[in-house]
Amino acid sequence: MNDVIYTILNHRSIRHFEDKPLSNEQIKSIVSCAQAASTSSFIQAYSIIGIKDVEKKKKLAELAGNQEYVFKNGHFFIFCADLHRHRFIGENKGENISQSIESTEKFMVALIDAALAAQNAAIAAESMGLGICYIGGIRNNLEEVKALLKTPEHVIPLFGLAVGYPEKRTDQKPRLPFEHIYHEDEYEQDKAVYASQLEEYDEVISSYYTKRSDGKRTDRWTEQITNMLNKPTRMYMKEFIEKNKMNLK
């Protein structure tokens, strides 16, 4: 097993960081690695906003659901789907490219580009001995987040990435069975096989939580997911995206 594979397979979310900021060199290395990610048709439809301002970090932590590690970390990155620069290019060239950049396809390209860049950044940070935690909570209050970050139309803050020196590491959460994730030649639709794989995983997750909590928690994954999805969240998202002139057609 080489070092890259070891780093990837050793991933776990870190939510407790030392009070030690990343150096400018570390930040640049992480962002450069993000930029090295694949990008659809070389469109590079994302931007990264690094947050150093203490008050802004505190406000973002509050907007993300009072998650302390949004504030207490080595550096906080926000990954954005960004077609603003492409609109700017079109205007500069005297071309109307609105139909293209406001399409569902280009919206999906921007989402995928940002996610690929972020995962490169995460692996780079972990390879440096740092810990990371993705923060989807910034989408709880996107209007306020956009105002705080002063992002223009055609830019959507998607998620944050808290990076820093781990204060403590938790056990790694077991993932779904390989056979449940990987389908060969066609999608597996045998309900008996599907149910068996999920039952196996439920037992693994229940054991994980039981051990981690000294028996106080015995969640099964399918119950956890059902309970979560029974409570719709961020239902304003379609309206917000359309208001910011992305994904209109």
Results as ranks from 00 to 15, higher is better:
residue 66 N to Y: 15
residue 37 A to T: 02
residue 58 K to P: 00
residue 83 L to C: 04
residue 48 I to K: 01
residue 38 S to V: 12
residue 65 G to L: 09
residue 62 E to G: 08
residue 89 I to T: 12
residue 83 L to Q: 04
residue 65 G to Q: 05
residue 37 A to N: 00
residue 82 D to G: 06
residue 86 H to D: 03
residue 35 Q to R: 12
residue 71 F to W: 08
residue 51 I to R: 05
residue 91 E to L: 11
residue 65 G to E: 08
residue 50 G to A: 06
residue 64 A to Y: 06
residue 88 F to M: 15
residue 56 K to Q: 06
residue 33 C to G: 05
residue 71 F to E: 08
residue 79 F to W: 08
residue 73 N to Y: 03
residue 42 F to L: 08
residue 84 H to F: 14
residue 59 K to R: 13
residue 86 H to P: 02
residue 77 F to H: 01
residue 42 F to N: 10
residue 83 L to G: 02
residue 64 A to K: 04
residue 89 I to V: 14
residue 87 R to W: 10
residue 37 A to C: 00
residue 50 G to D: 01
residue 70 V to E: 00
residue 58 K to G: 02
residue 76 F to K: 05
residue 66 N to H: 10
residue 62 E to S: 14
residue 46 Y to G: 04
residue 50 G to C: 07
residue 65 G to P: 03
residue 63 L to S: 02
residue 49 I to T: 11
residue 79 F to K: 01
residue 59 K to T: 10
residue 53 D to C: 03
residue 61 A to H: 07
residue 43 I to H: 10
residue 40 S to A: 13
residue 91 E to W: 07
residue 70 V to D: 00
residue 32 S to N: 11
residue 38 S to R: 13
residue 55 E to G: 12
residue 48 I to S: 03
residue 52 K to H: 15
residue 58 K to Y: 10
residue 78 I to H: 02
residue 63 L to H: 05
residue 83 L to D: 00
residue 48 I to N: 00
residue 43 I to F: 11
residue 68 E to R: 14
residue 80 C to E: 03
residue 34 A to V: 05
residue 58 K to N: 05
residue 65 G to I: 13
residue 55 E to N: 14
residue 87 R to N: 05
residue 59 K to M: 09
residue 77 F to Q: 00
residue 57 K to H: 02
residue 80 C to A: 09
residue 37 A to L: 03
residue 51 I to K: 02
residue 59 K to Q: 13
residue 88 F to Y: 15
residue 56 K to H: 06
residue 36 A to K: 05
residue 40 S to V: 09
residue 48 I to P: 00
residue 59 K to H: 04
residue 82 D to S: 10
residue 51 I to A: 03
residue 49 I to N: 01
